[in-house]
Amino acid sequence: MNPILEVRHLSISFLQYESGFRRRMLTVIRDLSLTVLPGEIVAVVGSSGSGKSLLAHGILGLLPYNASMQGSILYDGTPLDPARAARLRGKEISLVPQGVNYLDPLMTVGAQLRKGERGAEIKKRCREVLARYGLKEETQSLYPFELSGGMARRVLISSAVLQSPRLILADEPTPGLDAQSAGRILGHFREMAKGGAGVLFITHDLDLALTVSNRVVVLYAGETVEEASASDFASGKLRHPYTQALWKALPCGEFTAVSGAQPYPGEIEQGCLFAPRCPHCRAQCTSGEIPYHPAGNGWVRCLLSPQEEE
């Protein structure tokens, strides 16, 4: 099956002005690759600041003014250049943004959902979609500041699924929701995947990712460190020490967290970004490029993995 989304060696950097007129490129996403097949939910898991939101915005061609992007993004087998992304946004590709501040504070919910379209048809669709997430018709006449956190979250999701997209980029869609609402939303994602859509499910919650997704891509400080199928976790087939640490930190694992913190962009210039925290770190881990390579039915960026040791 052809992937609906294919991201290859994606890098995103920011041009920053330091003291005076010195400029420097700050690379926040480096050599990120992943694929999403139709009918599949792929989770992107990473801690705060690992570049998850930027990945979603980059795919849509909506990076900030001072950002630049390298690598390639293929949608449905064809390169997704800015012009094509602009045509597909809101139609075939939709975004569930991360927070309430993604709603225009001065516009009612209904007006934002309708995007300026008029007519009975769009009104009907808005009503139906809102109802699906347990929101009443009156929600449409409310301003964002009048919504509770959970209501706003459901409005954001409604807006993303209004158009029956083929690719959904869901950026942390469920925090702040009760278990029932969250379950309903995840269930709905699964339903849409069954209908042939691809879902990129962005979250920092590995536990949640494992309950809904087919595959998990783990981000660490802007790099993909591992791609594993959801079943690899329970069966102990994980390839990267960071993924193993994440898995162990879950309540169902040993519940031990790895010490230290993820480095800031640009803090570590070469070698493995996880090296300072890695229990298995060796001399060759701290220099050169660590390649992202296939391992079993997944991918890994680690010198310890079997492929490299042969």
Binding site: G90, S94, P97, Y102, L103, P105, L106, K115, G116, S159
Partner: peptide
């Protein structure tokens, strides 16, 4: 702003961004 990013993600055109969100804000 984030809300213009999301408006663009929803597929709103440049003129719609300017007239609906820009002028209002």
């Amino acid at each position: 702003s984030d809300y213009v990013l999301f408006a663009r993600a929803r597929g709103e055109s440049k003129s719609s961004i300017l007239l609906r969100h820009g002028l209002r804000n």
